[in-house]
Amino acid sequence: MAVLAAEGSAIDALGQFRLAHGLGEIGGAVNFTNANEIMLLAGAVLLGLLYFGMKPRAIVPGRLQALVEYLHDFIYNMCLDQIGEEGKRFFPFIFTLFTFILIGNLLGLFPYFFTFTSHIMVTGALAILVIVLVTLVALRIHGLRFFTYFFPAGVPKLLAPLIIPIEILSYLSRPVSLSIRLFANMTAGHVMFEVFASFMIMLVGALGAFGYVLAVAPLAINIALMGFEILVAFLQAYVFAILTCIYLHDAVHLH
């Protein structure tokens, strides 16, 4: 959530998503933005969590180690459940994807932090990465038989000119829906924060002391919203990861 700024009476709900240069002079020269800063931070937080979490290597884990083990098992089981035996090979990829998005979503909830998952450039790049990987995996395993995917067995031959374009469009819409879902959820949540926070400032500005009393209502909404956003942060990372697993399942098994 970026700085709350109600300039005049207008609510600047989208200003928080504006990119700025990070790291002072050097950042300006190489186009290193505040989004990149948070991405690096997310990577550092993840590596730190894994390193310090697993350092004790205790049989009975402490809190941090239990967290890391739970995270590992959660994704590992998701890979096995959704993809099957071959899921083990994709576990590192899914784990990285899930934790990067999750930590990015959660870091974005802190004041003055930038939410990089609220940019469709970022989610779009991740989705394209996923879909290119899925297609390459399918081509590697099945070769040219992959293209039978677009014409399911049991469909009358007469319908081929209709079914094949629809199936291809459905396949191509995957990265779009994958990226829009994450981006829209994060953007919507942060816009709501900004709007209700602006209400507080506007109430105080317009009504003075009485405004402070009324401003409790938007504050209460924002507190409830924070709980909801933490849920959304987990849910969207989970949805992104599980859909990637489902696409990989299709690529590996090719019904």
Partner: peptide, 11 residues
């Protein structure tokens, strides 16, 4: 909603 819209957008 996203599924419907994204397929249409690609098309």
């Amino acid at each position: 909603g996203v599924e419907l819209a994204s397929a249409l957008a690609v098309a």
